[in-house]
Design a protein around this nucleic acid. Structure first.
Lengths: 331, 331
DNA sequence: CTGTTAGCGCATTCAC
DNA sequence: GTGAATGCGCTAACAG
């Protein structure tokens, strides 16, 4: 914008028609005289006119745009979810506006509000805020839906990945390979997923006497994984589960650097199956998430809300084990 | 938006004041009676009012937002440039709206136009469109600036990376290691950078008799690099330069998979120095680009244009050689 | 089939 | 210090 160079009025004047007619031509309304339409189009071309989306949005009462909040756009996982979401939305004529919170929990609410003020709805992708904050925010920004890594937020999360199932699968995988001392690299401290995970680990330990799974605070980035070795190396841990692939890959890079054999000395498993996982050396064992499908499901849910339809049933996606080379028998 | 739940009028009515007063309170205009202001704020809280950015934009004549076009958001390089740009812009109270062209050259112009119609200016990050298209588009969307990988588009590119210098450096690096048969994995076919690169390679060949550098059409993604080996493996090439790190990393992944020693059988060099480069195995030799600085410089240039100041001098960034382990003596 | 009128939600002159 | 009126650029009835 910035004091629009050429407006609909300019075009109307130059084409000697009313603004309404210009509007009709621009929107492809068929009931316009061919000659007039041509004349308008010509002028549009000459003046380089292009309608202000802001004005259209205000007038139409909708922007045909939905906002998306992600905690970290540099994480390939979110990019892929976003792609699935984006193409699905695009197919319905919607565009997206993405905002990255950079893992700053305290900024999330404001960012969502902000995004919502210029769009018709919002998608909260793995919000890091507490469940309470979320519950408070949601009603003020709806239509809104949230994608979560845990399936137990049934009230809010329309789309979720069965993280617990995935971690259990990975744990069993390591245990089957003979590992008994396992570490879990924790993701961003969020919500009350804490207890859920603890419960899982206790269950697994119960089922497999002799096995211990220890949680280690970590983070969500490559470097978080890289530095995790500092606290891990002096332990007897032989198997490591990571909150996500970034963590696992960062750790793997560190181990390669320190010439620690993988999976000889320690087995590593990630979560998400980002592209790089396959290209790592050795290729990373991880749980594959159908990221584009998750994005699509999110759009389907959001579109339903947009249309005011009945709530669609929450979609829960099960990850799939990609057993590659970073995990092997305990030695 | 979507038929705004609560508007400024609602707040005004509930607080028994005029809309103008509500507006003043919302914008922190000091000349408002304390009690009234408090009353308004209370109502705002109760009603959960939050001003429509769309309406504000239209009224103010500016959105305090700038659009950014990138060819591939999943490429970490662009993310980092974006981050630099974003934080610089944020410091000046501007927000950004990103659009990803997914390397679809033909969509770029429309996307830029689209973005520009809801923002005050646009940044074209490594546009893939032809120089002619760019020249035609630019005037219609200004204020606009472009970031380029080549320094020779002096007329348009406000910020650029000295790609030619970087590739030359890498070529010399390989040659110094004894490589004489070198392949260059080409990026997206764009503009007329073709001849520039050819010129460079001829120069290098002249300066080093016996050396040949062959261009191989490739692409810009991990998988493009992965499949490049299919055409490379039957050649006598011992050194490979890649358009970017993604290509190099994809190729490296393939070579690890096929158990082809790197750099024993073939040396590889990338370009950009994305995070993953360091974590690859072996760590990737590449040219480091000051990506955040590039982003910041872009904002400085764009801000100047926004203010209608004189054109700032084009900024050209020189990449720096990061000699790591994917390049070694010819064997 | 085209022009006139009104209004989307907000900020901002201008009087009061 | 506050309210009433006007306009940002566009679309959508409504007439004609």
């Amino acid at each position: 914008m910035t004091v629009r160079a050429v407006t609909i009025a300019d075009v109307a004047a130059a084409a000697r028609v009313s603004r309404a007619t210009v509007s009709r031509v621009m929107n492809g309304v068929p009931t316009v005289n061919g000659e007039i339409a041509d004349r308008v189009r010509t002028v549009v071309g000459e003046l380089g006119y292009s309608p202000s989306d802001t004005a259209r949005s205000l007038s139409l009462g909708q922007s045909k745009t939905v906002g998306v909040l992600v905690p970290d756009l540099s994480n390939p996982t979110f990019q892929q979810i976003l792609q699935g979401f984006n193409s699905a939305a695009a197919a319905d004529g919607y565009r997206i506006l993405v905002t990255d919170s950079h893992e700053e929990v305290d900024d999330e609410a404001a960012l969502v509000l902000d995004a919502r003020n210029r769009t018709d709805a919002v998608l909260l992708c793995s919000p890091r805020m507490s469940e309470e904050q979320l519950a408070e925010l949601l009603p003020t920004v709806k239509p809104a839906i949230v994608i979560t890594r845990e399936a137990h937020f049934q009230t809010e999360a329309s789309v979720s990945a069965d993280f617990i199932f995935g971690i259990r699968t990975l744990a069993e995988h390591l245990i089957a390979l003979g590992h008994t001392r396992i570490a879990y690299l924790d993701g961003p401290a969020i919500r009350n997923s804490q207890t859920t995970l603890d419960t899982l680990f206790r269950e697994v330990e119960m089922a497999h006497p002799g096995v211990t799974i220890r949680r280690v605070p970590c983070g969500s980035s490559l470097s978080d994984g890289y530095y995790a070795w500092d606290t891990l190396k002096d332990t007897t841990v032989t198997g490591v589960l990571a909150f996500n692939d970034l963590l696992a890959l960062g750790l793997l890079g560190r181990l390669n650097e320190d010439r620690v054999p993988v999976p000889g000395r320690v087995s590593i498993a990630g979560f998400d199956d980002i592209h790089f996982a396959r290209f790592a050396s050795p290729p990373l064992t991880t749980m594959k998430l159908p990221k584009p499908s998750i994005g699509e499901a999110a759009w389907v849910a959001l579109r339903a809300e947009l249309k005011g339809e009945a709530h669609v049933a929450p979609a829960i996606f099960r990850p799939e084990l990609m057993s590659r080379q970073t995990t092997g028998p305990r030695q």
